[in-house]
């Protein structure tokens, strides 16, 4: 159903990629680790490799978590926009198909947070 309006109604999206000066916005979440209680937003260059993002940005944000010492980047099961995904960590975000407003998440089997509580 289209929007019902009183006249012409055509406005640009507030968060279109042109507003990010060549960067993109993405979201990333470590499944079953809700100590950071909502997925985090990152403004990144699309030319950054996924490994650089995970190692230099995402992991430091979660360093305090007791499970972090067990994290093994080779064993992660990824999703992209909630669909199963098999990225190459050493390729760039663009090469991996990540685009503006992509939602990435990963899960390492066996790591379910403190006392298996998902935190």
């Amino acid at each position: 159903m289209g929007m019902v309006t009183i006249g012409d109604y055509d406005f640009p999206c507030a968060d279109r990629v042109e507003n990010y000066g060549g960067d993109i916005n993405i979201y990333c979440c470590w499944e079953h680790h809700l100590l950071v209680p909502a997925p985090a937003a990152y403004r990144l260059s699309p030319e950054m490799t996924l490994r650089l993002f995970i190692e230099q940005m995402f992991i430091p944000d979660h360093n305090h978590h007791p499970d972090m010492s067990h994290l093994d980047l080779g064993r992660l099961r990824w999703t992209h926009d909630s669909q199963p995904w098999d990225p190459d960590l050493d390729k760039t975000l663009t090469e991996n198909g990540v685009t503006h407003m992509s939602y990435l998440s990963f899960y390492q089997p066996g790591l379910d947070g403190v006392k298996g509580s998902g935190v």
Binding site: V36, A38, A40, Y103
Partner: peptide
């Protein structure tokens, strides 16, 4: 503990 990132809204 404080978060240092903006969240998905």
């Amino acid at each position: 503990f404080f978060t240092n990132r903006l969240p998905l809204v």
